[in-house]
Structure formats: structure tokens, C-alpha cells
């Protein structure tokens, strides 16, 4: 008699699984902010060179996402929000994620250097290093200030876009960096407030885990108080103008109102309405950043008609 043994065929990754390693949603934010940085810079770039620049900035961001998924596979497996990512789900092997991340990092940096300039390529290389090594490997598991310092990685793309066009740094590109840098902590801490046990289960020292929710609520308010004047002051830089000022005043008024509401609430209140205010603040913070950069872009688009800027 012949025994037939049916063994489970190992899961085989499709193209989409490898693409998911690049964190497409994060990439979309990178593409948008880098594009704004490039378009508002006071220099004209050939459309093909601009397209190539944005493409390889996005690829570099995706590569750092793949390296992050390789390194964080153990904690991604524990957290509900991330357990279906390709590596913890067992669809893509960790070594494949590492290989893809390293290869794409190299391609992105070299191609950006060849297409645009060495300064932009160097800035992209530093961004990948900062996200993969400084944030993922070092800060994320050691300090509750992880997202404060790590937020710099997400803040570099508009600076790189600006560098693609001008080959350097300016007050305006530093402002765009600062805007994302200061926006990151309240954005992520509002998420941590309603993700409940995810971070503590994974042993990630988010502020909610190490210092409690009361302190986190205070930090959301403190960073909102620092962010609001900075965002409004951007209206008076070379990339700001009356339209940006109106948008920034409205959005920052809303931001402060949301942050004060979060600060005033206690856990019992938040539990009672299932973190409605915190979830609303998190959603709003996404529009907040998008609309600020949209207003910066609108100012640049209006300039040829004598309407943008002061």
C-alpha cells in the first residue's frame, strides 16, 4: 500500500507582497511632500529629471520601509496592527526583505545622484540610514522619545525635493523639515492612545507604556502648542503667503482645540466613547499635514499670476 502524505506547501509570495514591504502608504506621503519641496524651490528642473528624482526618493523611502520590516518582524508579529505584514505573516522570508531593502537603497541613492546631484543623493542615503538604523534598530526599542527623534526620517523628503532643484538647503526647506518633525509626535501619540495594548504587548517603550496615558495627553498638547506657532510662522517665509496664512490659522486653531480636548479627557471618558476624540484627532492630523503642503504648493502655483506670496 502506498501512503500519500499531503504536506502543506509553503506560502509563496506574490509581487504585491514584495511591494507591500515598501510601505506604499508611507511612500505616498513621501512622494507628495518631496514633490512640493521640488516644485516650490526657486529653480526650474527638467520634467523628466524631476520625475526621476521623485521616483528614486520614493524608492529610497520604500527601501527603508523594507529594512524596517526585516528588523521589526518580531514585534510586528505581536501587534494587531502589523501582524499581517508580509514578513510576520510568513509570506516573505526575513532575508528577502533585507536583500530587497539593501538593493533598493543602493539603486535609489546611486540613481538619484546620477539623475540630480550628489547633495540630494547624500541626503537620501542619510534618511535611509536614519530610519533603518537610528530609528528602527536603536531608538524604537530603547526610549519613549523614539518617535520624536525618529520623526526626522519622515521630515527629510521635502528637503531632498528642494535639494534636487537647488542642490542645497535653505530656510524654506528647513521650515518644511521642521513642520513634519514637530507634527510627528502628536500624530503618533494620538494613535498610541487608542491602540491600547499593542505597544505594551510588543515591549515597545511608547510614551503611553513608559509614562502612562495622562502624561501622553499632556505631551500631545505641548507639541501642538509648539507646532502651531511654527506652522503659522511659515507664512512669512519665501514659500508662504496670504493663502497659506489663512489655511494655517484655521488648521492650527483646529489642532489646538483637538489637543486641548485630548488633554482634558481621562481614560474613563475616552473608554466610554471608544476614543472618539483621539481617533478624530489622528485622522485630522493627516489632513493637517496634507493641507499645509497643499497650501505651500498653491502659493507657488499662484505666483506666476502675481497672486502667490507677499
Amino acid at each position: 500500500m502506498t501512503d500519500i502524505r499531503i504536506t502543506e506547501v509553503p506560502k509563496e509570495a506574490g509581487f504585491g507582497d514584495y511591494f507591500a514591504l515598501l510601505k506604499p502608504r508611507v511612500m505616498s506621503l513621501v512622494v507628495f511632500t518631496a514633490l512640493v519641496g521640488l516644485l516650490v524651490a526657486p529653480a526650474t528642473v527638467h520634467p523628466m529629471i524631476a520625475l526621476t528624482g521623485i521616483l528614486f526618493i520614493a524608492l529610497g523611502a520604500g527601501a527603508s520601509g523594507a529594512l524596517n520590516m526585516w528588523w521589526d518582524a518580531d514585534i510586528d508579529r505581536v501587534m494587531k496592527r502589523t501582524r499581517n505584514r508580509p514578513v510576520p505573516a510568513g509570506v516573505v522570508q526575513p532575508g528577502e526583505a533585507l536583500g530587497l531593502g539593501l538593493a533598493l537603497s543602493g539603486i535609489a541613492v546611486v540613481m538619484l545622484g546620477l539623475a540630480t546631484n550628489l547633495f540630494a543623493a547624500g541626503l537620501l542615503a542619510f534618511t535611509i540610514f536614519f530610519y533603518a538604523v537610528v530609528y528602527s534598530m536603536w531608538l524604537k526599542r530603547t526610549t519613549p522619545q523614539n518617535i520624536v527623534i525618529g520623526g526626522a526620517a519622515g521630515a527629510f523628503p521635502p528637503m531632498i525635493g528642494w535639494a534636487v532643484a537647488t542642490g542645497g538647503v535653505s530656510l524654506e526647506s528647513l521650515f518644511m523639515f521642521a513642520l513634519i518633525f514637530m507634527w510627528t509626535p502628536p500624530h503618533f501619540w494620538s494613535l498610541a492612545l487608542f491602540m491600547k495594548s499593542d505597544y505594551s504587548d510588543a515591549g515597545v517603550p511608547m510614551l503611553t507604556v513608559t509614562h502612562g496615558r495622562r502624561v501622553t495627553r499632556g505631551h500631545v498638547l505641548a507639541y501642538a502648542l509648539l507646532l502651531a506657532p511654527l506652522a503659522v510662522a511659515g507664512a512669512f517665509t519665501g514659500i508662504g503667503g496670504p493663502l497659506y496664512l489663512v489655511v494655517a490659522l484655521a488648521l492650527n486653531g483646529w489642532l489646538l482645540r483637538g489637543a486641548v480636548r485630548i488633554w482634558r479627557r481621562d481614560e474613563a471618558e475616552a473608554e466610554a466613547d471608544r476614543y472618539r476624540v483621539e481617533k478624530g484627532f489622528f485622522r485630522f492630523s493627516l489632513y493637517y499635514l496634507f493641507l499645509h503642503f497643499g497650501a505651500i504648493l498653491a502659493e507657488a502655483a499662484l505666483k506666476p499670476y502675481g497672486l502667490g506670496g507677499w
Binding site: V9, E12, G14, F15, G16, Y18
Partner: peptide, 15 residues
């Protein structure tokens, strides 16, 4: 044809 073959085809076409 196994689902695995479809995934491999998708991967090759994507690449």
C-alpha cells in the same frame, strides 16, 4: 495549475 503557479506568474510579470 496550483495557486502557487499563478503567484509565480504574477511575480515574474511584475518584475
Amino acid at each position: 495549475e496550483h495557486e502557487m503557479h499563478r503567484r509565480r506568474l504574477g511575480r515574474n510579470v511584475g518584475l
